[in-house]
Computed example of a mutant assay.
Amino acid sequence: MDVTTDAAAGAVGPWLIVGLGNPGPEYAMNRHNVGFMVADLLAERIGGRFKRAGKAQAQVVEGRIGPAGPGSRRVVLAKPMSYMNLSGGPVNALREFYKVPVAQVVAVHDELDIDFGTLRLKLGGGDNGHNGLKSLTKAFGREYHRVRFGIGRPPGRMQVADFVLKDFSSAERKELDYLVDRAADAVECLVIEGLERAQGSYNS
């Protein structure tokens, strides 16, 4: 793929937006798969369908987000197909293929230490025990953007691993479509208008 300068973005190459999750229908509605849900919605918005990315262990959609014309941004949406704790390899392969700077990678993921449905956007930082983030950071460093979707802490003595691999509750599912839609809006705002504007609008 030829790399061209996106003058509106002031950057070379596309943004790489990564939804983190686990492949397979048995995981589809797990809390750990909310990143996949957001990526699926973004793909729907740009009229694309996920396809296998050559030799990379991932599915991708290429397109543009934002208003038509110079205000839009080139993006590659990605879902690693390697399972959560091995996400870094496929994502780094895509990053190198599309020549995406680390600062133009956006990881969308579940976050235990934030109340359900709350969003937090940031650049860099630790992984807070999240295996997907650990793998990304090991592969290409920590200075990528994160869109953190709160899922809350497990109730009682439930183990974290059990909690994240359970489906959203029936009460949570009543709000889930709206919240995933809002997270997709936050990703678009981040890419088009920048982190500070997106934080001001969506960090709740």
Rank of each mutant, 00 (worst) to 15 (best):
V3W: 06
T4M: 11
D6H: 06
G10H: 06
G10C: 07
G13I: 07
G13E: 05
W15N: 00
P23S: 08
G24P: 11
P25L: 04
M29Y: 04
R31E: 09
H32A: 06
N33E: 12
V34G: 05
G35R: 02
F36Q: 03
L42T: 04
L42M: 13
E44Y: 03
R49Q: 12
R49S: 14
K51P: 00
R52V: 14
R52I: 09
A53E: 12
G54N: 10
K55N: 13
A56E: 12
A58T: 05
G66L: 13
P67V: 11
G71C: 11
R73D: 11
R74C: 01
R74W: 04
P80C: 07
Y83T: 03
L86Q: 08
N92K: 08
P101D: 14
A103K: 13
A103S: 15
Q104P: 06
V106H: 04
A107L: 01
L112R: 03
D113C: 06
T118G: 08
L121P: 02
G129N: 13
G132R: 08
K134F: 09
L136W: 03
E143Q: 15
Y144V: 04
H145C: 14
R146F: 10
R148N: 00
F149Q: 07
G152H: 07
P154C: 06
P155N: 01
V160G: 04
V164H: 03
K166I: 02
S169A: 09
S170K: 15
E172L: 07
E175M: 11
Y178D: 12
L179I: 10
V180Y: 00
R182F: 01
A184C: 00
A184M: 02
A186L: 03
A186W: 06
V187T: 01
E193W: 10
A198K: 10
S204E: 12
